[in-house]
């Protein structure tokens, strides 16, 4: 699904059977089975085979299945796509995307494999991982490079290396890149996903990082540890008053449509397009944490 919730995208090493099996227990919105940084060069083939079998066999429940494949200019990328697409993950995340041509190439290749295996065109979605200064500066064109692209993530570890800086706790050095990625993605109608926070023992720092990402406009956060998933969901949880207002807006819209009237107001404020789309977004987040009728009741 194109615009499904992607608050938490949890990385799982692609060559670790136990971690793959237990990943759905933590109920992230997306599970990213990693074939790139988490897998040593001499185990790339083993991880690929394991992930293919996992996709064919395991039930990941409501979690979206995303595979982080190796970058286009590595010896593994083509093999990754050829092996994985027939196993039908929901999405491939292309590491180290720097040019729109990287996405165009991956799109075409995925399409070829879909055709070979009688899989409907566009079944396997694509996500661009922006991890270098060049990638950030090309983000706008990358975000529009393919219909298959539904999200764009930021990778701060490689990015700080590319600008010859160090990653700090408050992320000052990432501000411009984050802002550019959010704007590029939002302008193209796809979801921006923020970078990982590697210090898994620093819950306070992680929470502040997620709050910053949400405030900047990111749709979600990449996670490197299961304990980070719950924190992300807490931060993205709307307040009761936001939910009640969103419900009132949607009820007023339905009532106006029933009456055939155009302009409507809720609590004395005119309701226009941006307010409606914000209300829809709040209700989508509320439903995921069981704050609306028919929502998830786990409080997750």
């Amino acid at each position: 699904m194109r615009n499904r919730l992607r608050r938490s995208m949890m990385f799982v090493p692609g060559n670790n059977p136990s971690m793959i099996i237990s990943a759905p227990v933590f109920r992230p919105d997306s599970i990213i089975l990693d074939l790139e940084d988490a897998v040593s060069v001499n185990q790339k083939d083993a991880a690929r085979d394991l992930v293919v079998e996992a996709l064919r066999t395991l039930d990941f429940g409501s979690c979206e299945t995303v595979i982080r494949i190796n970058g286009r200019h590595t010896p593994y990328c083509e093999d990754d796509i050829r092996a994985l697409v027939p196993a039908r993950p929901n999405m491939l995340r292309l590491a180290m995307t720097e040019e729109p041509e990287d996405i165009v190439w991956a799109d075409r290749m995925i399409g070829e494999v879909e055709l070979e295996h009688d899989i409907p065109h566009g079944t396997v979605k694509l996500m661009a991982a922006i991890e270098t200064a060049r990638g950030v500066l090309n983000a706008e064109r990358i975000a529009r490079a393919s219909e298959r692209l539904v999200a764009m993530s930021f990778g701060a570890e490689d990015f700080t290396n590319s600008i010859q800086s160090e990653r700090s706790r408050d992320g000052f050095e990432l501000f411009t890149a984050r802002a550019l990625i959010v704007m590029a993605a939002r302008a193209a109608g796809i979801q921006p996903i923020d970078t990982v926070y590697s210090n898994v023992d620093d819950d306070e720092g992680f929470r502040a990082d997620v709050q910053r990402a949400k405030q900047m406009g990111f749709a979600g956060k990449s996670c490197v540890h299961p304990r980070q998933v719950a924190i992300v969901h807490e931060v993205f949880r709307p307040s009761e008053s936001e939910v009640r207002r969103a419900e009132a807006i949607m009820a007023a819209i339905q009532e106006a449509e029933r009456r055939g009237s155009g302009v409507i107001a809720v609590n004395g404020r005119m309701v226009d397009g941006p307010i409606v789309s914000k209300a829809e977004r709040v209700l989508q987040l509320a439903q995921a944490v069981g704050m609306t009728k028919g929502g998830d009741t786990s409080g997750n």
């Binding site: 059977p17 099996i21 083939d45 083993a46 085979d49 394991l50 293919v52 079998e53 996992a54 064919r56 066999t57 395991l58």
Partner: peptide, 17 residues
């Protein structure tokens, strides 16, 4: 204690190698 899918994957990799 590997599940069946893990065994299949490992046999596949070993044979390909």
């Amino acid at each position: 204690g590997a599940l069946d899918f893990v065994l299949r994957a490992r046999v596949t990799t070993a044979l390909k190698r």
